[in-house]
């Protein structure tokens, strides 16, 4: 399960900021005016798909997945996960935050156990937590606090916490932002492997076009705000993907660059 249907989804923010008014200042947004962020978005994510979302900064990617995850209200349209309306955050859909999503007063072990804290059988619970801590390679750091871990380890701990729940949908908002290149590549690999293994729907926001094309089963590209779907392609290439071997993939890469406004792609 983890089938997401989005139809005609719109989101308006009411602009509360008072723009300083000078003679030649024509602010893009006026006070009290509606600011449209998502404009009639139609998307369908299949069960177990790893969807990568690309788009210019400030176009509404975070807004979209916050709405799907139930953290934000939509203005209009339909949003169904497994046929059910989304009414609010739920532990079936776990959000991996861009940074510092771990609770800093809890150890890795306690953080990872949040999703199974109501599980009755202690032994089974401990086994499950340990299993996922091992999967993300954090064995030996169970009793460390987040501030005692590196940035990459924190991301992995958060990933473990999300996976322990066995969520239907996993949301990741630029989870690798701020990581160095090597860690990033390794984390990519870990997520791909983990996804092949668990087959959960993952919605993954990134700014990195190569990353989206190497990881995704589907790549969605948004326009500038108000965000509309500009490109929505399903990628059926096996992993690992190599741009120099696949002509189609290379062609797609150029297209995505162009769609995002870079015309002289490398």
């Amino acid at each position: 399960m983890g089938h997401v249907i989005i139809k005609d989804l719109c989101k308006d923010y009411v602009e509360r900021r008072a723009a300083p008014r000078t003679a030649n200042n024509h602010s893009a947004v006026d006070r009290g005016q509606q600011l449209r962020v998502l404009d009639q978005v139609d998307l369908e994510f299949h069960d177990g798909e790893l969807v990568c979302i690309l788009g210019p900064s400030g176009c509404g990617k975070t807004t979209l997945i916050r709405i799907i995850a139930g953290f934000e209200e939509k203005t209009s349209g339909t949003l169904l996960i497994d046929g059910k309306q989304v009414k609010g955050p739920s532990s079936e859909n776990i959000f991996v935050f861009q940074h510092n999503g771990l609770l800093p007063w809890m150890t890795v072990w306690e953080n990872a156990g949040l999703g199974v804290r109501k599980m009755g059988n202690e032994a089974e619970k401990a086994e499950r937590i340990q299993e996922y801590i091992d999967i993300v390679n954090l064995s030996g750091f169970e009793h460390h606090y987040p501030h005692q871990l590196s940035g990459g380890m924190q991301r992995r701990a958060e990933l473990a916490r999300a996976l322990v729940v066995n969520p239907e949908v996993l949301f990741m908002d630029e989870p690798f932002a701020g990581l160095d290149y090597l860690t990033r590549v390794k984390m990519r690999e870990e997520i791909i492997n983990m996804h092949e293994y668990f087959r959960k729907t993952i919605i993954f926001i990134t700014h990195d076009i190569e990353e989206a094309l190497t990881m995704g089963d589907r790549v969605v590209v948004f326009t500038e705000r108000p965000a509309k779907v500009k490109l929505n392609v399903s990628l059926e290439y096996p992993h690992p993907r190599d741009f120099s071997c696949s002509v189609d993939l290379e062609q797609l890469r150029r297209t995505v660059y162009e769609e995002l406004g870079v015309h002289h792609a490398l």
């Binding site: 609770l103 949040l114 729940v165």
Partner: peptide, 13 residues
Amino acid sequence: INSLYFQVAANFN
């Protein structure tokens, strides 16, 4: 308190 922590709380019911 960072509002993120409340979102985590909501996410984990």
